[in-house]
Design a protein around this nucleic acid. Structure first.
Lengths: 221, 221
DNA sequence: GCATTATTTTAATCTAGATTAAAATTTTTT
DNA sequence: AAAAAATTTTAATCTAGATTAAAATAATGC
């Protein structure tokens, strides 16, 4: 039923329109900017009203558009969800990469990553969609998102292992500990709905709260 | 559109059928037992396949039934979700009450509660539905579930406060700490899908992991 | 200001899956 | 084993909301 072959105007556009001398970055601006706004609106909708409770009309309304307009940016609702999740995964990876680039010890890399990730979730670039509907994605999309999720979990477990190795983290079951911490983070959008105040509180306190249990008994830097 | 007045046969049944001498508990058995099975099947479906990905047919299939048969137990899909959430809330409250009844100090009440709650989620009585679709419940149901959720959160924060008072828990922001711990728990069904082995691991390790950060620095009972 | 391309809207369809009514079956009661 | 009640199925509807096509508007380049 879905012929993935033919490009829609949006996709084609980015290929065609760079006819002159402008920098490519600026070139993508209009279309890409709106698309980003759309993804954030969709994430907000899905988080607040649930997936089934969010019609395309609801998402479009946030942008001051008509539901049909969204089809200019996205092939269908499934793709909208997919892109929300892809964005969530990318922001998570970005946060972790930034932390890794800072070359701290294990514990501080974890702390740094948590700060970046949470900042993203509750700040300007948020909200980030809760991945509640991965199973309703089409197979290829589902596989991709699941793969990214697993990679992220695996990377976080590596951070824990590194911390245990360098003594900055107390020995623990990294799988379970990772799941516990990730769960806390992933659940945030469930109770935090964009209030800037609590957003700052979360960003300020969560990293500490989540890592308090990881510190080795004796160590007191 | 929904005239809540007239009782369906199922509801009427429980009123009528206790004509003889049998104990009421046994009396409810057939209908109630199937209904419970249905709720567990639905919770499993919703958790694994997502809400929109779960048709009534899917839920019914697990029970070896036809989709239409579910309407004998429930007025509509919304009510099915509502009952799943109600059940989740009740099991959570039950776990906490049991822990409270044991009259430990704060920390051990928390530990005990976590054990009971997690046991329920990963054990026989599970799975417990992730409350992803509260917003799509009808207003009255939504209000009730939200109220129960808030009560549960509030009670957990009370446990934390009690622990801080009696010195078994280190001082902390109880709101944020509560959200962190509850998030971890609520997220469990997202990655745990009924494998008995990991179920036991979770039950064994999570309470410890979640409370490790709460212990006061010096204390070493 | 004209031509072209990008974006949005209007106004229909289209559809999966919820829902319902009536009939069939199974269970319980006597 | 017949009658009554409980449970399930069969076979239609019914519907919200996704989707689409064509027309309208806005933006951009020249």
């Amino acid at each position: 039923m879905q012929n993935a072959a033919e490009l829609k105007s949006q996709d084609g556009r980015s290929q065609r329109s760079s006819g002159k001398m402008m920098a490519v970055k600026e070139e993508e601006t209009r279309f890409q900017l709106q698309k980003d706004r759309m993804l954030r609106a969709a994430a907000r909708c899905f988080n607040e009203k649930g997936y089934s409770g969010s019609s395309l009309k609801d998402v479009a309304a946030i942008l001051g558009l008509t539901d049909a307009a969204l089809y200019y940016y996205v092939r269908n609702k499934e793709e909208l969800v997919y892109l929300c999740y892809l964005r969530a995964a990318e922001l998570g990876r970005e946060a972790m990469q930034r932390a890794l680039d800072e070359r701290h010890d294990g514990m501080n890399t974890i702390l740094s990553y948590l700060r970046y990730h949470i900042d993203m979730m509750v700040g300007e670039r948020g909200p980030i969609a809760i991945m509640s509907e991965i199973p309703s994605l089409q197979p290829a999309h589902r596989a991709e998102i699941l793969d990214l999720s697993r990679q992220h979990s695996a990377r976080f477990e590596e951070l824990l292992k590194a911390g245990i190795s360098d003594g900055s983290v107390a020995p623990c079951d990294v799988r379970m500990t990772g799941n516990a911490i990730m769960g806390s983070i992933n659940w945030i959008p469930k109770w935090h709905h964009g209030d800037a105040d609590t957003g700052e509180t979360i960003a300020a306190e969560f990293p500490e709260i989540l890592t308090r249990g990881l510190r080795p008994p004796k160590d007191q830097s």
